[in-house]
């Protein structure tokens, strides 16, 4: 497989290690009420789709960046890749969260 690194271009997937579903970006607040339930879902439950899947890859033998790769789990076609840091920061911006400006 080849992964289109947003900064480095097409790289062999062997340079990366795989973590799993990109929902792992959305770590719950450990001090919130019912944190136990939220963490159970976060740690253990997966959509596991047969189709488009957003997932985390680490460029371990490369620039050590974490990527969010969008890949079809049936065809292995890769639809895009972004720096996970950018995705995480975006999800923290008020607009993305739907908070009032």
């Amino acid at each position: 497989m080849l992964i289109p690194h947003p900064l480095l271009g097409l790289r062999d997937a062997q340079e990366f290690s795989y973590l799993g579903d990109a929902s792992l970006l959305d770590r719950p607040d450990g001090l919130a009420e019912k944190a136990g339930d939220a963490f159970f879902s976060y740690v253990y439950l997966r959509e596991n789709p047969a189709g488009v899947h957003r997932e985390l890859w680490f460029h371990e033998q490369g620039d050590r960046s974490w990527l969010v790769v969008t890949r079809n789990t049936v065809t292995h076609e890769i639809l895009g890749a972004e720096l996970a840091r950018d995705v995480a920061l975006r999800s923290r911006s008020p607009r993305e969260r739907g908070d009032p400006a």
């Binding site: 290690s17 973590l19 985390l56 974490w66 840091r85 995480a88 920061l89």
Partner: peptide, 14 residues
Amino acid sequence: YRHMEFARQCLWPE
């Protein structure tokens, strides 16, 4: 180390 980078880039990029 991988996990620390994960925490830095993915969990707490701020």
